[in-house]
């Protein structure tokens, strides 16, 4: 009986332990496709350095068979995939996915500035856990809720991650503006509040409408210093399963950069066409009015000219 009890209790304990472990356990596979530029690579590096729960992989060779990523993620025990797909050596698309069967979000990544080129003075511990800050607009729509959840899983560092540092010294902010998700990373900087004495401060705190926590230490002022990188994400498509499955959301407002470029080119081309057309018409008109010698047409050969007669 004792052994049975033991085993039972053990399983129970194991269950509980498992539940505790299951709380928030994320691992992210982070990789890019071939054909990324230097800046894309640096962004990847920046994100990797801030995500101790991530695993970096070599560039993926294919851009069509993305379902291979699921196997790759399984291989490395990752339940999230952050995949950067570069196209034409200039456009970057970010895929975020819950690996075995979660939804996948494809987003267009714009306005990219890496840590290196931004020269911000903020800095943070490598592997400290970020506070994730979401705009309230994320809760408004279903597809944004999916995206928020994915962002939380991918960029939020779980407590149990291996290389994690115990302090919180940076915040990652996601804001929705203009139908896009703007991302910023700030360092949390705590400083002594000015010239007030602690006792006076405590008294004042009581008077304050929102009293802060009173402790032995005086409350510190919080301010933020940006660290970088910066980027903007435009959601394009959400698929139901991981890199496949039916499409459950598609952004109507998204215009692919190719389309924009071709429109620009076409506009330029039409301008040229109009001009040439006008020139031609003008020529014809002048010819019809007899202002040019042959009306803009080649002269008919005179059958009596010397060159014909004595050819």
């Amino acid at each position: 009986m004792a052994s049975v009890y033991k085993s039972l209790s053990a399983t129970n304990g194991h269950d509980e332990k498992e539940r505790a472990e299951r709380k928030n356990k994320q691992r992210v596979l982070i990789l890019s496709s071939r054909g990324v530029t230097m800046r894309h690579r640096h962004l990847l590096q920046d994100l990797y350095s801030m995500m101790p729960h991530s695993r970096k992989e070599a560039k993926l060779d294919t851009k069509t068979k993305l379902y291979q990523l699921n196997e790759l993620a399984e291989l490395y025990n990752c339940n999230n995939v952050l995949f950067f797909e570069a196209r034409k050596g200039k456009d970057l698309y970010a895929w975020m996915s819950k690996a075995p069967n979660g939804p996948t979000v494809k987003m267009h990544l714009q306005n990219l500035h890496t840590m290196e080129e931004l020269n911000f003075i903020g800095n943070c511990l490598k592997g400290s856990r970020p506070v994730l800050s979401f705009d309230a607009a994320f809760e408004k729509e279903a597809h944004l809720r999916v995206i928020k959840e994915l962002l939380t899983h991918i960029f939020g560092v779980p407590k149990t991650s291996r290389r994690v540092k115990p302090f919180v010294d940076h915040v990652m902010a996601f804001t929705i503006a203009d139908g896009k998700i703007w991302t910023r990373v700030y360092q949390i900087n705590e400083s002594e509040p000015g010239k007030k004495k602690p006792t006076a401060d405590g008294e004042e705190m009581d008077v304050d409408p929102a009293p802060k926590k009173k402790g032995g230490k005086p409350d510190l002022d919080v301010n933020l210093v940006e660290i970088g990188p910066r980027f903007v994400l435009t959601p394009i498509v959400i698929q139901e399963s991981s890199f496949g499955g039916p499409i459950i959301y598609e952004n109507k407002e998204f215009v692919s950069p190719n389309q924009i470029r071709s429109d620009l080119r076409r506009a330029k081309g039409s301008k040229y066409n109009r001009r040439t057309e006008a020139i031609r018409e003008n020529k014809i008109k002048r010819g019809d009015l007899g202002l040019t010698t042959h009306g803009g047409r080649t002269k008919e050969k005179d059958p009596l000219s010397d060159s014909v007669l004595f050819a």
Partner: peptide
């Protein structure tokens, strides 16, 4: 402390 994600009360208006 497990997830550390906060949603603002008011949507940010720009």
């Amino acid at each position: 402390s497990e997830h550390m994600s906060v949603v603002t009360d008011e949507p940010v208006e720009i």
